[in-house]
Design a protein around this nucleic acid. Sequence first.
DNA 1: GACGTGTGCAACCATGGAGTTGCAGATCAC
DNA 2: GTGATCTGCAACTCCATGGTTGCACACGTC
Lengths: 110, 110
Amino acid sequence: MTVGTYAELASVFAALSDETRWEILTELGRSDQSASSLATRLPVSRQAIAKHLTALQACGLVESVKVGREIRYRALGAELNKTARTLERIGAEWDRRLAAIKEIAESMEE
Amino acid sequence: MTVGTYAELASVFAALSDETRWEILTELGRSDQSASSLATRLPVSRQAIAKHLTALQACGLVESVKVGREIRYRALGAELNKTARTLERIGAEWDRRLAAIKEIAESMEE
DNA sequence: GACGTGTGCAACCATGGAGTTGCAGATCAC
DNA sequence: GTGATCTGCAACTCCATGGTTGCACACGTC
């Protein structure tokens, strides 16, 4: 994996590591909403939510659609799926290595 | 998804969002090592690495094995795979919802 | 026993970021 | 035009945390 992709990964991880952002994503997963609408449902200010939405949009987890004078946000699965595949690949790699070590240890016991 | 899983998920992402921790994991993915050994390879102090290892161990990304007077750490794939599956499920859900919305929009155009 | 090395704990500093308030600019309805 | 509402920007506070240094302890080796 190159350094470039790591920065991308890290931004997604950073976005997903905040609980408030998860709540925002969960809300958006149920229905598209504006920042103001989210602010009435979550216990933080609209400005705080706006910041979170900027971060989420920056790493592709969310997209915005203008509807009249308000801006609706919606959750996108693509980036999440991509991240999931990367994690799966790395996890499998670690498991493989661990299995190999175990095998060597067993063969040495004989 | 319950609130409980949120916190768990968030802790894994928090662990993965730090570059130094990622480097530690990469190192451990190549071979099991002690904190001191990692300190010679990475540009941070042993104490900093020890803190990271504690965090990584707390969320199940790493396990420790005592070898003589040193403590070796190794990367575990299980938690990563579990996280990947969760992300995949959520991502698929969002995609499904988006597809449904798109379909409705198209049917209204007719 | 003495030294070298690996670990653990505590205090401390600096930075980033989550959250807030306040204000100003759009835009829609009347 | 006026008011209501949605947005954006900026300054500020506060706390979590990544990093450091310093010291003490444990264990193995000579």
